[in-house]
């Protein structure tokens, strides 16, 4: 994507402007978190400095205001990631139920360590804090989907599914940019 022009797709841009209108006049900065999620969905799953500058220009704020925010919140990737970011919950209740094993298993299966990306650029493995699904531990998140009550067999088939689809998966799913939101009230 070296010289690709950084610009939201028309659908995303329209969505972004509708989101901005949900906040009072002059408080458009409030829209930053949803817009950064949309930016990750539009620009390969991560936020480069030019992408953050572009978001700043849309929100009419300084680039530093975007950097400040993007570096604070754990869901924003400041480095390239695989098409499919696997986030395994590592906190207490999940740990009690075998989360460590899930992490080790995926590391071994994909031949990467936590924090790394597979050579083919398909998967990045990350551990995250409690995702509010402790009753169905151990669990992991990929995009907007929670995969719960994991067993190693389940992990196998989940990874296989994503691999065969081969698509970019992001928290704000692409399908929620192109379609619906007929009403997203302003």
């Amino acid at each position: 994507m070296a010289n690709k022009k950084i610009e939201f797709s028309p659908e995303a841009l329209e969505l972004v402007h509708r989101i901005i209108k949900r906040y009072p006049e002059g408080k458009q900065k409030s829209a930053i978190l949803p817009i950064l999620h949309i930016a990750q969905a539009e620009f390969d799953g991560w936020l480069s400095a030019p992408v953050m500058d572009y978001v700043a220009s849309i929100l009419k704020i300084l680039p530093i205001e975007v950097y400040e925010v993007a570096t604070f919140y754990s869901m924003f990737n400041l480095k390239p990631v695989g098409k499919c970011l696997i986030e395994v919950c590592r906190t207490g209740p999940c740990w009690l139920m075998g989360a460590e094993d899930v992490v080790k298993y995926i590391e071994k299966k994909l031949n990467i360590k936590e924090g790394e990306t597979t050579k083919d650029g398909m998967f990045t493995l990350k551990t995250v804090e409690c995702l509010a699904a402790c009753g169905s531990a151990p669990m992991m998140q990929v995009g907007e989907t929670y995969h719960e009550n994991l067993t190693l067999e389940k992990v196998d088939s989940i990874l296989q599914d994503y691999k065969s689809k081969g698509e970019l998966v992001t928290h704000w799913d692409k399908k929620h940019i192109a379609t619906n939101y007929t009403n997203l009230h302003e």
Binding site: P34, L36, V69, M75, F76, E129
Partner: peptide
């Protein structure tokens, strides 16, 4: 409105800051 991943934003004044885009 969606957050960006931060436990602290559950604390009500942090949540308010976050809602203001900070």
């Amino acid at each position: 409105h969606c957050g960006g991943g931060a436990y602290i934003c559950g604390e009500e004044t942090a949540l308010i800051e976050s809602l203001e885009g900070k």
